[in-house]
Design a protein around this nucleic acid. Structure first.
Lengths: 224, 224
DNA sequence: GACGTTAGTGACACCCGGTGCCAGGGGCAA
DNA sequence: TTGCCCCTGGCACCGGGTGTCACTAACGTC
């Protein structure tokens, strides 16, 4: 549901630049112990996020990001398949974590509740990570091109959830209920993120809980 | 929720070509009474749909569609803002119809039920229109680029539904419940379309009813 | 210490979606 | 006939994305 807000530490799918690309501002060579030139991918991500937030996604061209990160346009596309991908961090790891949470759920717990709980838990970020997450989600849910692109990323989430429901209910992931649960919970989670973004002081966990519960319980607020 | 399956009769936002563009296969000039040269936009739509279905969306370039429709590449982009838009027919009219249905709902009816009913009714197509609808939805839900693009179109639907719920519940369209109802019902409707596409012999109306009810009632199938 | 391998990089050419601009040319009213 | 409106095609251009080639640093091997 969310881009991986961790600072790209593990580099699950990211490479590490083994030498400097020399824009001149790299100070001394032996700056940090172990990783002297820093992670190129992380540097590009940061530059992209900053520029997109500052000038708007479609007003920034790849050359801008590349220049800000001290790499060439061609190299940008070696680290990110598309312009939009620069916003998502290590999302594959996030999806993998959701899948692990789902697999580890108590088989006696109601399926829908287990999905909601996993959604809440996988989005339980440390306070220090929230500003970055906010910046990412603000872009994803606000910029049309990124909103459209998000559909492709979220397809993986839907698949993981649908497979979980299918396992628990003894059907296939393409059956009605697994698909419906996946689509509905994701819709609710997205709504929770919108509410969280709109209210600077709110808690993401609380918003997720409230929104998922409201949906899962058949919208009790609407006079039932 | 659905592209307008009607044959583009009203031309709510489409223009009408006032003279032929002459690829040679236009038979005699006085072919059909009243509209001798046919609707250019409709011709392009048909060519695009056929080619996309036949070769896959991203394996078809605009020049292919333009050539098949007997127009220039530049003219294609005068009828459709993007390549993806050629698939959607008169979707704005479809959204407008949904909005009229929502406005006309009985104020005493439960809000959620009124949204579900409107979703079902706005997607109640004549048998003759179903093959075209199937082709369109198959593309939209299958081709990644079109799936991503659909998010932008469906944003209009969400807005209309959220505004309806906001009116009925005395809040704003950006409040939690209006947003959540809009997102959830759309998720359910999309799922219904997937099920309908997967089962050649099923009824779209039945699928929509079943899926929306399952969601709106809190997923009774999941042992509650 | 010379060597081949591996991997990230930059430069270049190219494809394709999309846009701005300009120049026709047909319908239509004055 | 004149002028206007609108649709059209052609052309140049922008920007995202890809294939290819050559360069160079790190590393293991003989």
């Amino acid at each position: 549901m969310t881009p991986g807000a961790r600072g790209n530490s593990g580099s699950a799918d990211g490479f590490v630049a083994p030498f400097p690309t020399g824009t001149g501002d790299n100070a001394t060579v032996t700056d940090a112990p172990g990783d002297p030139w820093g992670d190129t991918r992380a540097r590009v991500e940061q530059a992209a996020l900053d520029l997109f937030t500052l000038k708007g996604f479609e007003h920034v061209i790849i050359d801008d990001v590349a220049a800000a990160a001290g790499i060439s346009r061609r190299t940008f596309f070696r680290h990110f398949a598309t312009k939009a991908d620069a916003v998502w961090g290590d999302f594959a790891a996030h999806v993998a974590r959701l899948e692990r949470l789902l697999v580890a759920t108590d088989p006696d717990e109601p399926v829908l509740a287990s999905v909601c709980a996993a959604y809440v838990e996988v989005n339980d970020y440390a306070d220090a990570e929230l500003p970055l997450l906010r910046e990412r989600m603000q872009l994803i849910l606000t910029e049309p091109a990124l909103l459209a692109h998000s559909q492709l990323r979220y397809a993986d989430v839907d698949r993981v959830v649908a497979e979980h429901v299918a396992r628990r209910t003894g059907t296939t992931a393409t059956a009605l209920v697994p698909r419906l649960v996946a689509a509905s919970t994701r819709a609710a989670a997205t709504t929770a993120f919108q509410m969280w973004l709109a209210d600077e002081g709110s808690s993401l966990t609380v918003q997720l809980h409230q929104t998922l519960d409201e949906m899962a319980h058949g919208f009790p607020t609407l006079s039932r």
